[in-house]
Design a binder for these strands. Structure first.
Lengths: 202, 202
DNA sequence: TTATAATGTGAGTAAATACTCACTTACAAA
DNA sequence: TTTGTAAGTGAGTATTTACTCACATTATAA
């Protein structure tokens, strides 16, 4: 049995464990992600966990990978919209992102968590890598919009991309602090309308 | 000796403890903020900590208060600039905020931390309260700028305020993830220039 | 059938952590 | 001087947590 973090197509338990971890984070936070809690959520013994992962850290790594895959799927979904304008695709990406977070409340918890920021170089790297891919896509969409005459030419790509991600972040954080009490998507729509004014040529 | 969380002017140890806590968070994160670590940083025994605070939670509350005070001081500093334009004051507030974070690396760690988001209703409330005051100030400055004809009239106040805070957030998070490896203030300046384009009437 | 590997578990263990307690020392006011 | 109180400590304790180990069961393939 290979347990070194590499994917093994047939290992159903691995997926169950990772999904259980995400559920626990969503419900009770990263601090409550103990081996005991995971084992109970899956319905197996704690010792059995270690038949599928070498450490709790590896489990965490699995959940980060899973989240990253979901986010990158959104990039693909937008890439496919070949007949839509750059601005329409940016909007779609914005809403897809919010919707994905809405369906996985563990995401902001995990991304903001200290586990992701301190030590754990592999986790940090994965996150930075995903952010990098995301930024690149955003910047290329913005450039495309500028060429098409939809987005003002004096808008700097990297700054606009940061603004895009910043809006998602602050909204997500407010949402998390409020106990997920308002509609991410509705509030996001309002924010987007304003951002579009910023981008558009007058 | 009163230890119920209320300020006591003469208690120097309280301040020392809170400052030590902030230093530990900056250096090693909230997870490393143990009673043992605090005691060692201050240079007193663990038991002595409990002469000044009833619990570790109270110490954390003290640090959150300290940070909040600093942020609100920036609001005051800007309120005093009576002869500057609304846009100039917004810029000043933006840079003051970044500078304050730059000098206190523990701030993003603490604000993003699970301790602030899960359970601990009193901490959450303090944070939300500070954010509320901040938003209100931002919105009033934006309105002022609109009246003066400096900021475009079709910009929605609350969305623009969220964008302002979102930029600080995303920049701060990138900075934290990068191990504080770039200049917050320099990168912030770039972002600000772009944001000003968004706000300004053409 | 039988050998081998995978999957499973209960009962640990060592380390970390927030907090307590009995007791001592310093020090200011009566 | 006495007395009361704040400030201090070393040596605990109960609990939590990641992880291990010896051993049992199940599935697979020769």
């Amino acid at each position: 049995m290979i347990k070194n973090g590499s994917r093994l197509s047939g290992d159903i338990r691995r997926d169950q464990i990772v999904e259980a971890a995400l559920r626990i984070i969503a419900k009770r936070g990263v601090k409550s992600l103990t081996t005991a809690a995971i084992a109970e959520e899956v319905g197996i013994s704690e010792a059995n966990l270690y038949r599928h992962f070498n450490s709790k850290d590896e489990i965490l790594q699995g959940t980060v990978e899973k989240i990253g895959e979901g986010l990158l799927r959104n990039l693909d979904a937008v890439s496919v919209m070949t007949d839509a304008s750059a601005l329409a695709r940016l909007k779609r990406l914005f809403m897809l992102h919010l919707d994905y977070i809405d369906r996985n409340e563990g995401i902001p918890r995990l991304i903001f968590s200290e586990e992701m920021h301190i030590g754990k170089e592999n986790l940090k790297e994965k996150l930075l890598n995903t952010i990098g891919l995301y930024s690149a896509k955003l910047e290329s969409l913005i450039k495309e919009g500028q060429k098409a005459g939809l987005i003002r030419k004096d808008m700097e790509h990297s700054s606009a991309a940061l603004m895009f991600m910043g809006m998602i972040q602050i909204l997500t954080m407010k949402w998390s602090l409020s106990g997920f009490s308002f509609s991410l998507v509705d509030e996001g729509m309002k924010l987007w309308r304003n951002f579009e004014k910023c981008l558009s040529v007058k």
